[in-house]
Design a binder for these strands. Structure first.
Lengths: 194, 194
DNA sequence: TTTTATTTGGAATGATCGTTCCAAAATATA
DNA sequence: TATATTTTGGAACGATCATTCCAAATAAAA
């Protein structure tokens, strides 16, 4: 009887995500979102409540997608150290492939919204903590396996790795230079050596 | 004969800078700027042309001020390595003192405006290159003086240092934890050892 | 094909945006 | 103190913002 939904919600979220990444939350208008998603205003409001709701859904979707993509990719190896290396390899490829310099939606959101929107700020902060903790588990396992130095605590090393990730995300958005990114990753990872 | 300007332009720029840092360019309204500066709309438009002009002037003033503050501080020592260490010490103090998490106006501007405003993006990019180059000169001198390892090129090390700076700026805005910042700086600087 | 529930497009709305404008206030000189 | 010149406050402007609303279009079921 009823007419069924004419669009794929996930596809819409990914279109919206791209615009939010490029222009930021405050730099994106509903008109931008209408054009990018191909949906009508009514459909957007009906499905996502409002602009803020769409932003939150896009952020959550981005987080899930990134996590599962990374998990899938890291099945390639059991070595904790190689998981770290692979993560930075993939990051470099993502940055260099990102011709529009959209960057990471979560990092962008954290930077734009910390002082403005507690709900978004908390979400971004939580996601960042999760990412850092992933590094922590790998470093800890790597140290146990003798792949990673014990000169520094697992906590300190994982904080360093995640800090380098954040720096690269900033460089990727502002001044993405292949040589620079390679240098940074090489030096960042050298700290893990005995 | 004429009535003279009733306000200090530099003081106004610093008030504006604080608001732009917290809320971003698109998140800041002219009303916010009127309240923060204490000036009237007319005076703002008469002095800075428009919102965008005020933003650019605030960015340029921030850049000059930061550079001269750093230069002044680093007179304390002649050792290139100690200049680097001091720079990170000061950065940590700035981040921890920054209760509003305003962060660095230049980094914030680069992140918010890359895809939106070429003029601002170029200014931020130029300022970032300058900062990285400052590290480069110190690393090069430090290597020549035997204070810094030659395992990596001066270019690679300076890129690494600046990348760590950018990461810390992001963390300072989103999740500023004293312990984390100390860890990151310690590991970042350890790379300079022989 | 007709019916029915739902989506859809686009006009309309009120709020807020950046900007302009001008009469009134203010100050350094005469 | 009076005059001349500039700043100032605040109202007013058009543009754009997010959001609402409804008639028309649409697709599944009868």
């Amino acid at each position: 009887m009823p007419k069924v939904k004419q669009f794929d919600e996930v596809a819409v979220l990914e279109k919206a995500q791209a615009v939010f990444s490029e222009k930021g939350y405050n730099g994106t208008s509903m008109d931008d979102l209408v054009k990018a998603t191909g949906l009508s205003r009514s459909s957007i409001y009906d499905t996502f409540t409002d602009k803020h709701g769409l932003y939150l859904k896009a952020l959550n979707h981005y987080r899930c997608e990134q996590n599962s993509n990374l998990e899938e990719l890291l099945k390639k190896t059991d070595s904790p150290r190689k998981k770290i290396t692979l993560t930075f390899d993939v990051l470099m490829k993502m940055i260099l492939a990102d011709k529009k310099r959209a960057g990471c939606l979560m990092v962008n959101a954290g930077m734009e919204m910390t002082c403005i929107d507690k709900e978004v700020a908390d979400l971004a902060s939580d996601s960042m903590e999760e990412s850092e903790h992933r590094f922590y588990e790998w470093v800890k396992a790597g140290q146990a396996a003798g792949e990673i130095t014990k000169r520094f605590s697992a906590k300190a090393l994982s904080r360093h790795l995640y800090n380098s990730y954040l720096g690269l995300r900033t460089i990727g958005r502002t001044r993405p230079d292949p040589g620079a990114i390679k240098d940074i990753i090489r030096v960042t990872l050298a700290v893990l050596d005995q």
